[in-house]
Design a protein around this nucleic acid. Structure first.
Lengths: 224, 224
DNA sequence: TCATATATGATACATTTGTATAGTTACATG
DNA sequence: CATGTAACTATACAAATGTATCATATATGA
């Protein structure tokens, strides 16, 4: 049994192995990029079993969706109840199991999976709770701020290969993750737009919002 | 002719139409998710012409890559030289043409395209220049901070559908883009981790980096 | 024990999709 | 005008892939 209470891969039923393999392959290679034959082979079963247990590839994906969502809330509770993290506001991108789940969400969003909206919404809500607890009344639209944090975090996962180049270490390895954590602390604690620039930028934006000539293009930061 | 100097779609040569359609479809539907038949039909030409001009689908993708990179540096210069933006540090996610190009980059990263690394690197460098000009010596690793900004910006594009839900408007429309810009100004100007929390977080991370028992999972922020 | 349902496997099928080939038109150039 | 080269089309081909069908084994319960 792992820390999270699942049996080891070899001890799982064929159905569970299929779901587990699919979750991982979908996360790593994308949904389109994963073939049912790959999933079956890596689960040590035959092709037909996917149809038998899940009806179709899309049925298997749907099973992964509900399982991932259920696991995320479960893991979050488990981690919060865990004494070591009870006093920390952080969630659990450090927990390897959570990493897999969030990578699955990231890929679902990229691939336009039907459940992506629900999964995204859930993670945003969780982040929003944290923001509102930490900075009550500080932000005009806490949900939007939460969404931006999620965009950053999931963006890092989507671009983990490119981040590994910048880091000089695998961003998903423990070592790289720690380096990345340092950088993220700096990113989230130091503003990249000064108050003055922010003020004028907001002014400009408001002016543009009032005038309907939406053709104009200007912005006050966020180089990209 | 458009502002950027390209002829209108109907006036383009078949080869240019194919490249333009491919760029858009690859960006919107993904590379795997786009068929050469779709590209040909939407370009108003026959299937074989893709092979004639580009050799293969992958050849067409490569042509889009080099074109996108060339266009990005070209557009950036053009926008900077443009008087209206000369005094602003912002780059040009507001420019509709740049939006298409960056969406193409975002999709290339998602799909693991071979040129994704180069495109990402270029955008990060551009952002890094801006950061170093704005805040000289402020950040320990400016390139890493730039990468995090790019992760946020590209993450927003990847999740634009979900962001539209939060915004209550299409995130890629002028109206939604302005709303989003307001939120981004707040995001980049207000810290989400207080200095005290940041300090203790960095301490914790350093402790973990020294001790090789990388199994531990903790972090000092970045709820996700 | 026998029967029935569930689990599992082997194989065939149809569709999609990228690629290859051959033919046709248009256009420049001598 | 002749001719050849590039642009372009129509169609055929082969591989990959999700799905369906049929057969077999295993377990469970009357």
């Amino acid at each position: 049994m792992t820390l999270s209470g699942e049996p080891a891969f070899e001890d799982m039923t064929a159905k569970a192995r299929l779901r587990e393999t699919a979750l991982r392959l979908f996360a790593e290679e994308g949904i389109e990029g994963t073939t049912v034959r790959d999933i079956a082979r890596m689960s040590g079963v035959s092709l037909g079993l996917i149809r038998h247990h899940f009806g179709s590839k899309d049925g298997l994906r749907a099973a992964c969706d509900t399982y991932a969502i259920e696991q995320m809330v479960h893991l979050k509770k488990e981690i919060i109840l865990d004494g070591k993290l009870a006093d920390r506001e952080s969630m659990s991108s450090f927990h390897p199991r959570m990493l897999v789940l969030i990578r699955y969400v990231a890929r679902s969003v990229c691939d336009g999976s039907p459940s992506a909206d629900a999964m995204f919404s859930q993670i945003v809500s969780s982040t929003q709770d944290w923001i509102e607890a930490q900075f009550p009344g500080e932000f005009a639209d806490p949900r939007m701020q939460a969404a931006l944090v999620v965009a950053t975090e999931i963006g890092i996962l989507v671009m983990h290969k490119q981040f590994s180049d910048v880091l000089g270490a695998d961003a998903l390895s423990p070592k790289g993750h720690l380096q990345l954590a340092r950088a993220k602390v700096e990113f989230y604690s130091k503003p990249l737009i000064s108050p003055e620039v922010a003020a004028t930028a907001l002014e400009t934006i408001e002016k543009l919002q009032d005038s309907p000539n939406s053709k104009q293009h200007e912005e006050g930061g966020a180089a990209c």
